[in-house]
Amino acid sequence: MTTSTALAVTDIHMSYGDLRAVDGVSFEVAEGEFFGILGPNGAGKTTTLEIAEGLREPDSGTVRLLGEAPWPRNLALLPKIGVQLQASAFFEKLTAREQLETFGALYGVTSARVDEMLELVGLSDKASTPEAKLSGGQRQRLSIACALVHDPDIVFLDEPTAALDPQARRNLWDVLREVQARGKTIVYTTHYLDEAEVLCDRVAIMDRGRILAMDAPARLVRDLEAATRVILERGALAPDLARALPGADQVAQDEVSLTISTRTPAPLLAALAEHGTLDGLQVRTATLEDVFLELTGREYRA
């Protein structure tokens, strides 16, 4: 099966004065893929997205969006793309339903579709609530509904989960998964690495205008070959005894727990089981955050 390419970005550069916001970025997103662009604030994620959407012309490089050039403003292409912007771009004083109706009208969409969208993002009971009275999470979901109201093929979401509380964030994850299940291609930016790990098929890690790594999150983590940490309650095992266990590379103890680092977790866990010390045991493998820190060699600046 060949999947066609929804978005192809080739070697784009963009400078603002001395600042190289985007410095040679290339990537491709397949149809139906959930693609994440990760990185700290100021990494160049938003600028990359803006160039891909056709809002800006790159200094150099090319963009093919659904097979067409998005710049200059391509009226034939616009109905096929959906965007959710960082600021909540809503009309003044309208209810959730009216916002959707108005955005829908920009694309010639009927109001039956509006109900479907409210349902999708779980705002059916908030249909007649003014947008200004919605919570942060509800507003983001409405914003995503407005991006999807005309049934686009590809959706760009710029930090949809920023500034949301954990519940609202999980809630939005469900919406995003549902959107992907409907066959949409999703390109989204975030600075939450844990979230990208859960949601994305593939991620590009960006910093200072460059892509540092790009792959499936699990593969990035595996390639890191980082140590697995096994954590026990303090006192469950003496540190000296722990150091003698098979596969234990490093042992550290603090007031609450004893942490054993290993690259071969299987024999270590077997030995721990023999000692009968599996109570309260936690195993922590590397995360995308470790990948990021490894790549940038800096404190992660979320």
């Binding site: 959407e53 809002l55 034939a76 109905p79 793309i81 960082q86 920009l106 694309y107």
Partner: peptide, 10 residues
């Protein structure tokens, strides 16, 4: 960013 949003609509 309503203007930007409108720019991205046909």
């Amino acid at each position: 960013q309503v203007l930007r949003r409108l720019r991205l609509a046909p």
